[in-house]
Design a protein around this nucleic acid. Structure first.
Lengths: 335, 335
DNA sequence: TTGAAAGCGATACCAA
DNA sequence: TTGGTATCGCTTTCAA
């Protein structure tokens, strides 16, 4: 029944207990200053005995920074399910957290549509907006608040803004070229009605590739995010007689194969398939599915690096970097 | 070329600009105190003109709390890939963040194996350890630091600890009973060598269910986490002649169906399948796969509620709550 | 080698 | 109605 009293132990309490001054105890515990080993030990002992834990907020106030970075995703309107269920965002989020931690920063999760008053009370040194919407208010708010920001290329050149993006156009053309080399003539492009840069740019890249080659534009749009709607879009594409599928909408790759099977199509014999995304089931599907990785881990690492460099140097000059996507060829697109 | 000066605007700066005192400006901006509308407006105007943003750290020091909750997952040893790639943890994480935000708290992402010095500098009001390992050091560290904690039932009764857990034993027996009712006689149990409570308890529940009914124990363990190893385990179970599969190891359900197909087994005719987990592809698989949901969203909400209640009341008395799992029956386990 | 005192930036009491 | 001053808990000169 040790009914420990509520009030937390402060530095002064330790000092009093040890018969030393705040200053000395602080130096002893932080390993700074020139203290005699005896005194240092005495201070440490008192701290241990009292169960002293320094008040983080106070140190931060003194230090002038919080080593905290806000993290939000622009992609999903609040409430439309969780963005983390997407393997891409899951990897992006955890890679960002890991990269930040390695630089001594912790990530604070912000809701997708966060307004300033939701983060104004948080001591954020910087912010990250992953896959911002077009003219994302979140981005504008952070920029206006002069909080260093890392997001995609749409902020290029703005003060305090740092970007990392992928080579979408090149990547899309690479996939399409690959499918053509493997003998596909009617390549359908399955996307989703997303307002992200990737979906917009990849759609444009697909269309211009088709135009250049004078082939029919076989884009199909999923009406909503989620496996169900994307599978429905895939079925439409197959109904249209496609002999290859490039799926950039997020979907579990095995479900695409299921759809093909239902249409009596053998992959890769009758239908070639490439999916964009990080879904781990692609590799173990039957047959294994070729994937275009958007490299969330590399994006996160590069962005955090840029952001931290800006933070440490205090230089608001905008910086940016491009990350290469990676096409992994598997049985589903190789004849 | 507005070369804005580095130093941030503080309250005093606004006060000087407005010809008022810090106190008055503070009251004006916070809407407290009794100020004349004129003065209030003058203060606000000055703040706006200077682009004043209050220092969050300073307010927090004053307020005595940070409204920040640390979030870590015990499950994965650091570096073994990201826990967020699991739909269960992805949902748990985002539901926790959402629930916390609704109560005015923000979530700080901590790495899985975090040691005290990784979070000591963070102003955490509380912590959450999802799916702790047995005797998880993380749990012990938080408890010892007297930081209010929410985790699973293993901390039941300890001061400052709050738990939420699921009815694992009942749930497992329910699934097994269901499979038996549907005519299965040789039910294999596919798990993974995880040190979480769920995997341990579900395994025990399966074994005692088998004993009670004098049927063979057909447990199979995946050697590692990840689709590959789990599919291999499923194949072993099928090789052993199972006529039903209860897969509690995390895997994309369509891959289980693929494995069955490779063994020439039709689902549900020759093989019944139930998967535990939140993988969204189960619903759209062909045939749709029955799933046992561990209800991460409900767990998160209940836990945050308990934690926040304890935080607001300052009462360290331990609390806990049980959440019911949910079995969704689909074609894969219905004859 | 040790300690007194001055901040960090904001809020809240209480006197004017 | 307004403002001086103490305070939150810690770190850091700087003097002794």
């Amino acid at each position: 029944m040790t009914d420990t009293p509520r009030p937390r132990i402060r530095l002064v309490d330790v000092a009093r207990e040890a018969g030393l001054s705040k200053t000395t105890v602080s130096a002893a515990l932080n390993g700074t200053g020139r203290l005699s080993p005896a005194v240092r030990e005495r201070a440490r002992e008192a701290a241990r005995a009292l169960g002293y834990r320094p008040n983080a907020t106070a140190r931060l106030l003194r230090a002038g920074h919080a080593r905290l970075i806000g993290f939000a995703v622009g992609e999903y309107p609040a409430g439309a399910g969780s963005y983390m269920e997407s393997p891409y965002f899951a990897q992006l989020t955890s890679a960002t957290a890991t990269a930040a931690l390695e630089h001594g920063y912790a990530l604070v999760l912000l809701p997708s549509g966060a307004t300033p008053d939701e983060w104004n009370d948080l001591p954020l040194d910087a912010a990250i907006v992953a896959d911002p919407l077009i003219d994302d208010p979140l981005v504008e708010d952070f920029l206006q608040a002069r909080i260093p920001l890392f997001t995609d290329r749409s902020v290029e050149g703005r003060e305090g803004a740092h970007w990392v993006d992928i080579d979408t156009v090149e990547a899309v053309r690479g996939v399409l070229d690959h499918l053509r080399e493997q003998g596909a003539g009617r390549i359908a492009f399955v996307s989703q009605d997303a307002r992200t840069r990737f979906h917009r740019e990849s759609g444009e890249a697909y269309r211009s590739w088709c135009e250049e080659r004078r082939v029919e534009d076989r884009s199909v749009l999923a009406e909503r995010p989620g496996n169900g709607a994307v599978v429905a879009a895939v079925e439409r594409a197959l109904g249209g007689g496609a002999d290859a599928l490039f799926v950039v909408a997020e979907v579990a790759p095995p479900l695409v194969l299921d759809a093909a099977r239902r249409h009596g199509l053998a992959v890769p014999r009758d239908l070639l398939v490439v999916c964009a995304g990080e879904d781990g089931s692609a590799e173990h599907a039957d047959p294994p599915v070729s994937t275009l990785s958007l490299r969330p881990t590399q994006v996160a690492e590069a962005g955090v690096e840029l952001l931290v460099a800006a933070l440490e140097s205090g230089d608001p000059a905008p910086t940016g970097r491009l990350v290469r996507t990676e096409l992994t060829l598997r049985a589903s697109s190789l004849r």
